[in-house]
Amino acid sequence: MSKVKYYYDSESLSYKKIERKKGRAFKYTFIFLLASAFFGFLMVFVTSQYVESPKERALKRELQNMELQYELLNKKMQQAETVLNNIADRDNNIYRVFFEANPIPDEQRKAGFGGINRYKDLEGFDNSKLIIESNKRLDVLQKQIVVQSRSLDEIAKLAEEKEKLLAAIPAIQPVSNEDLTRMASGYGMRSDPFTKVRKMHWGMDFTAPRGTPIYASGDGVVKRADSNSSGYGNHIRIDHGYGYISLYAHLYKYNVRKNQKVKRGDLIGFVGSTGRSEAPHLHYEVFKDGQRINPINFYYGSLTAEEFNKLLEHASLENQSLD
């Protein structure tokens, strides 16, 4: 129950009851409500601008964490790109040069992806540009890794072939130095022991006692081990592949048979004097792509520099050959 209020009337010298006007009460109520709404809106506005809600604080922390993770991802991508560029540089300028392979152009290594828009699903977001650029870098990085991986596979195959080639080249002297009596004759114009006429001597003659071991000068397959070639007597021919063939003539006997695989240094026969020969010795020839070449260029696998120079000196003398 509301209280009744009075006021003092000085004219009548008495207290009179204050009568409330309905319109004024409504006015005051409306003003009060309006003021309350204004201050409430003001408080909400101030709170929303300067005071974070728990949800906003959580979202802000999540955004900061995502920015930190992106920065770390960006650094990792930069490191990966640096390492990959270093590998690509060594691949082009060392490995591929050594194995005589063409370098891979940068356009091929770092090419993007043409055609359809691969990143359409990532458009329309607040950070779409950032997300799309990151995905593009990752895609290019992934493609570079694939290209480099295939290149290294190719290099490995080339290295394997190079290893086979180096093992196949006739690179050692077929008779040990300690078994030699002397180097009788080298490659070039020599005097024929039977006709005394100067003619081309296509190989090297190593004088050694009958029965001295003869070794394969490189990996290969025995293509002939017979005496069916005029002048050579008992002889062996080894096909080393890559266009190389070595020939061992005037043998006393064989230690291999036709189609047998041999390794460099394997015992294949023994020195003799069969065929057109004046004394026990090994006549040794090397063929490359069907052409006879000077065998002295292939002794890097068994002789020291001093031994090679001595052999070169004897092989250069225009003496009489033994076959």
Rank of each mutant, 00 (worst) to 15 (best):
M1S: 09
M1F: 04
K5I: 08
Y6T: 09
D9V: 01
D9Q: 01
K17F: 06
K21H: 07
K22R: 11
G23E: 14
F26D: 15
F26W: 12
F30M: 02
I31E: 14
F39M: 15
F41N: 08
L42F: 15
M43Q: 01
T47E: 02
P54M: 00
R57E: 10
R61V: 13
L63Q: 09
Q64C: 00
L68C: 00
A80K: 04
V83S: 04
N86A: 14
R90K: 07
R90Q: 06
A101H: 12
E107D: 15
K110T: 10
K110F: 08
G114H: 09
G115H: 12
R118F: 02
L122C: 01
L122Y: 06
L122V: 07
E123V: 09
K129D: 13
I131V: 14
N135F: 12
D139Y: 04
I145Q: 07
V147C: 03
Q148V: 12
E161D: 15
K162L: 01
K164G: 01
A168G: 06
A168E: 09
P170Y: 06
A171V: 03
S176K: 13
N177W: 03
S185N: 08
D219H: 04
K223V: 00
K223P: 00
I236V: 11
H240C: 12
G243E: 13
L247R: 07
Y248K: 07
Y248N: 05
L251K: 00
Y252T: 14
K261G: 07
I268P: 01
A279C: 09
H281S: 02
L282N: 02
I293E: 04
N294Q: 07
I296V: 10
N297W: 08
F298N: 11
Y299L: 13
Y299N: 06
G301W: 03
T304F: 06
E306D: 14
H314F: 11
A315T: 08
S316T: 06
Q320F: 04
L322N: 05
D323A: 04
D323K: 02
